[in-house]
Write a protein that binds this DNA or RNA. Structure first.
Length: 950
RNA sequence: GCAGGGGUGCCCGAGCGGCCAAAGGGGGAGGACUUAAGAUCCUCUGGUAUAGGCCUUCGAGGGUUCGAAUCCCUUCCCCUGCACCA
């Protein structure tokens, strides 16, 4: 197995079969999203890259000049994190890379260098892809940190900036203060998937300082009855742009990343504030500061205002306090507390004036420490947000939906400088892998791609409109995402990558640097030999956009050649990628193509992939639940892996790697090889497939086999055209094999006699079959092709053509009738259980065929009409019998379509030995009622002869 | 919550108005071959029936139709994505 793989790899490489250059043939350019090589390649990746390879090989056999390139996306931050974790000897990371990614120890220590990591894995990817037999033109391979590629990216980003599609702004990110880095979910020890909430900070004046409260519901400011402080946590006074804010100490830890120069002035004792009054900035009303234990110092600002009508926590805290005489006495709050009552703010169906009170009662919450409080808050929050309205008694906003009013309140208060925005995690804790508590940091001076720009969106939708999307359902997703995409932060301050040409402190974000790189493939083989310094904007303007200038530094002839190559291959015919990239990468691709290229260079098709499962569970490197592709190849062979991956699911469906089924696939492949040698064995001499002796077939079963072959070729071809690899293999391998099994079983006797027709049929099947499977199992196919006299490489062979004339419905029906008779006989024998000797088969007389035809013309089982027309046509004398048969045919016709009269007598005589063998009885065929002791002849109808067993 | 996609026989999955008791795998049962095992091939794998039939089934309920797994409505459940991350 290994030997054969090595043998063909060498031959393919030596012949440079995969190197594609412009020629007179029709071109086809196909790419898959390039991998980010931060780990070893597993079988999930194997599927991703096998699909385009199969398609590329198929299309080459169809006569296209196909370009299938590959490169490595190494820009970005993850490897930086990995490298530093390896440097830190983080046990989890070391274990992952040693045991899951199987990096040898001596290489692992070198992975303290992020560039080494991507070098190591891209190299490994390359080798595994080579072993898989992928027909990649490796001359065009590159990494996204190559100096020449960086030049291309600089050109691209400048183009977008010139077009006004990039702007400055700021954005909150999850951030680790110790690593001084933004963190993604994969960088977290705890808190994966936790969302970031936008909170409104509302400022309540207290003397010369401001108590800053945080809320998700700024509209409830109208119903604020008091402020809650937690006497058990630490508070500080900080300087915020000249204002003196009071917030919790923990809040300062987070907020100093969001507000510039947020310096602590002094510590504040919360006890001193309790019982004091502050001013509601919206209403001007004075409200008291009161103690509450539910207030979380880590969340928001560590201070909240109380709106007991709609916030269950506020409501219960108020009750708690009213009943807590100890606390009231301690702070001397008696007079203050007793007067506080909830103020109605929202109305929502199903609740009265004080929704918070009702939900607390419903969930049986008894105090502010109750964990169910969260549930109550969430439920009411969602309900009021989606269905609530501001109460009519409230001026200006009365009757407006909660959803709308929230924005108005927020906007107005921010304008009045009585509020501002902050961000916080929806839940806690969020811990970085380094062990540090994460915060939300506002990255300012960020650069953004203006994906919100309506004109750009519109143009992008045009790109989408011109594309074929497979599967078609995904088109809706694209539309949705393109419309929904907001401005995208396209600059980063850590990671590998290209710097922003006009703002050197920033790196270009990795999804932004990989949007039109498919164009780079077409010219990469030239650029690798050119000094990057010569690759200025003028060069790319000329090559990619045909904008001429005197600034081009590269030799003009070469520039022309490069430009011609780009124009030959572009636009991209197919882009393949995984589902999770629909909302970003694949949409960005459309955005950027629309912005930079003219319509004739816009992409033409996109295919979306599903995920991989392993024995029914989600595949995941970080959880160790993967099988490395390398190991799979070693264990089963590349062809088996390819075959399984292509056969078990369509590309866009999730496939499930199950060892039992992989082994089944392996057996099928072995069967195929054996079949080839079996054909030669039957022939008894050297089998030369390029020189099959023609014969004239006459037996139904031989014609049937040829018909099936052509049918399967047709179906497989049509399926492959639209990337249905599973369906294609279903036809080209499994169903065809089933038919071959059946055929060989049927002609068993003839095989022994070396019947020339059978040899012809089998040779013809084999010859087409090897070509049919060549895109899927290239090694096996080349080997068999060579062994049985194929011409040249099967790689270059012509894709098998089906002959529509050889696909015959009547032939197919004939075999169906034979099989049905055998099935019916066995069924009857099962029921009667008696001793039987002979089987009589009665064929339908001509007039019943006429009747079937009349019924078919009517088109539906309308018995009355069938009888009427039949009598009128005078097909038979006995009108009663016509009625009986019409009823029968009426029932049958929906199941068995009329396909014209066929010669049942000949068909059954052809198969009489077979039927007799299968049933173990003597078989007699009758065309009349000469011998009909049980009156069965009358049961015979077309396609369904009557049976009598005696 | 919003958006998209699904629920099919023991399991995975095809089918998306009548050839549907429902392709193809896997698993199971029986048979042929073999000293045996494996591999391979054949048959069966919803129920029932002494003549090829009948009955029940494609998440649940209702409807359209001569006819529904397939179309429409209602309902329950599951999966994926929701961004600054490749």
């Amino acid at each position: 197995m290994k030997d054969i793989e090595k043998k063909w790899q060498e031959k393919w490489d030596n012949e440079k079969l995969f190197e594609s250059n412009p020629n007179e043939k029709e071109k086809l350019f196909i790419t898959v999203a390039f991998p980010y090589p931060s780990g070893a390649m597993h079988i999930g990746h194997g599927r991703t890259y096998t699909v385009p390879d199969v398609y590329a090989r198929f299309k080459r056999m169809e006569g296209y000049n196909v370009l299938f390139p590959m490169a490595w996306h190494v820009t970005g931050a993850p490897v930086i994190g990995i490298a530093s974790r390896i440097q830190r000897k983080d046990p989890w990371t070391l274990d992952l890379y040693e045991n899951v990614h199987k990096v040898p120890k001596e290489k692992l220590i070198k992975m303290e260098d992020p560039e080494y990591i991507v070098r190591y894995f891209s190299n490994e990817y390359h080798n595994v892809m080579h072993d898989m037999g992928f027909s990649i033109d490796w001359r065009r391979e590159f990494k996204t940190i190559d100096p020449t590629y960086k030049k291309f990216i600089e050109w691209q980003i400048k183009k977008l900036k010139d077009k006004g599609l990039i702007k400055k702004g700021k954005h909150p990110v999850k951030y680790c203060p110790r690593d001084k880095n933004p963190v993604g979910d994969h960088d977290l020890l705890e808190g994966e998937g936790i969302e970031v909430n936008e909170l409104t900070l509302i400022k309540f004046k207290h003397d010369n300082e401001i108590l800053v409260t945080a809320t998700l519901r700024p509209e409830t400011i109208i119903g604020a009855t008091n402020i809650w402080l937690n006497p058990n946590i630490e508070y500080v006074q900080v300087n915020a742009n000249g204002e003196k804010w009071v917030i919790s100490k923990d809040a300062h830890h987070n907020l100093k990343n969001q507000i510039k120069d947020l310096k602590i002035i002094k510590e504040i004792k919360p006890e001193g504030l309790i019982g004091e009054y502050v001013e509601n900035p919206f209403t001007g009303k004075k409200i008291p500061i009161l103690p509450a234990s539910f207030v979380d110092g880590e969340y928001g600002s560590g201070i909240v205002f109380s709106e007991p009508a709609d916030a269950p926590a506020d409501y219960i805290a108020l009750l708690d306090l009213k009943n807590n005489s100890e606390l009231i006495d301690k702070y001397e709050l008696g007079n203050i507390v007793k007067d506080i009552e909830p103020i109605n703010v929202c109305n929502v169906k199903g609740y009265g004036k004080i929704p918070a009170a009702e939900i607390i009662e419903k969930l049986e919450i008894t105090n502010q420490e109750d964990p169910k409080l969260q549930e109550a808050t969430n439920e009411l929050y969602k309900l009021e947000f989606s269905k609530g309205k501001i109460s009519d008694n409230i001026p200006v906003f009365g009757g407006i939906s909660v959803r709308e009013s929230r924005e108005s309140f927020k906007k107005q208060m921010i304008e009045d400088n009585t509020a501002t925005i902050m961000y916080d995690f929806a839940e806690r804790p969020v811990i970085c892998r380094c062990g540090e508590r994460c915060v939300i940091k506002i990255m300012d001076n960020q650069w953004f791609m203006k994906y919100s720009d309506p004109e750009w969106k519109e143009k992008t939708l045009k790109v989408l409109k011109g594309e074929t999307i497979i599967p078609t359902e995904i088109r809706n997703n694209f539309e949705y995402y393109i419309n929904w995409l907001d401005d995208w932060a396209c600059s980063r301050n850590v990671g590998l990558g290209t710097k922003l040409p006009w703002d050197n402190q920033w790196l270009i974000e990795p999804l932004t640097d990989s949007t039109i790189y498919m164009s780079y493939y077409t010219i990469a083989k030239f650029l690798r030999d050119i000094d990057p310094e010569l690759l200025n904007d003028a060069f790319f303007d000329k090559v990619l956009l045909n904008i001429d200038s005197n600034d081009i530094l590269v030799n003009r002839e070469l520039v022309d050649e490069i430009q011609a190559e780009f124009n030959y291959w572009y636009p991209l015919d197919w882009r393949l990628s995984a589902k999770d990239l629909v909302g970003n990468h694949l949409s960005f691709l459309m955005f950027h193509h629309s912005a930079i290229y003219p319509p004739e260079k816009w992409p033409k098709g996109t295919v979306i992939f599903g995920m991989g499962l392993l024995e029914g569970n989600k595949m995941s490197s970080s959880k160790g639940n993967v099988i490395l592709l390398k190991d799979a190849i070693d264990q089963y062979g590349a062809d088996v892996v390819r075959l399984f991956l292509m056969a078990s699911a369509e590309p866009w469906q999730d496939f499930d790697w199950r060892e039992k089924e992989v082994l089944g696939t392996k057996r099928k492949l072995e069967w195929f090889k054996k079949f080839a040698s079996r054909v030669e064995e039957i022939k008894g001499s050297f089998l030369n497939l390029s020189n099959i002796e023609e014969v004239n077939l006459s037996r139904t079963i031989d014609l049937w086999m040829i018909s099936q072959l052509n049918k399967h070729i047709k179906e497989a071809t049509e399926a492959l055209e639209v990337f249905q690899t599973r369906k294609a293999l279903q036809e080209a391998l499994f169903l065809l094999k089933k038919d071959i099994d059946h055929y060989m079983y049927r002609v068993n006797q003839l095989i022994e006699n070396q019947d020339p027709d059978v040899i012809y049929v089998l040779s013809t099947v084999l010859e087409s079959w090897i070509r049919l499977l060549a895109p899927f199992i290239p090694y096996t196919s080349e080997e068999l092709w060579e062994q049985y006299g194929g011409d040249g490489f099967v790689f270059n062979a012509e894709w098998p053509k089906y002959n529509e004339n050889l696909i015959s419905e009547k032939i197919e029906r004939s075999e169906y009738i034979v099989e049905n008779i055998i099935k019916d006989i066995s069924q009857i024998q099962n029921i009667v259980k008696g001793n039987t000797k002979k089987i009589h088969i009665y064929l339908a007389p001509d007039w019943k065929w006429d009747l079937y035809k009349i019924a078919d013309n009517i088109g539906k089982p309308d018995i009355g009409q069938i009888i009427g027309k039949s009598i009128k046509a005078n097909i038979h004398d006995d009108k009663k019998e016509i009625a009986v048969v019409a009823k029968k045919i009426g029932r049958e016709m929906t199941k068995t379509h009329y396909i014209g009269k066929i010669n049942e007598e000949q068909i059954l005589n052809d198969a009489i030995d077979y039927i007799s063998n299968e049933s173990g009885k003597e078989v007699i065929i009758h065309t009349d009622r000469d011998y009909d002791p049980q009156n069965k002849f009358k049961n015979a109808i077309p396609y369904k002869p009557a049976i009598f067993i005696e």
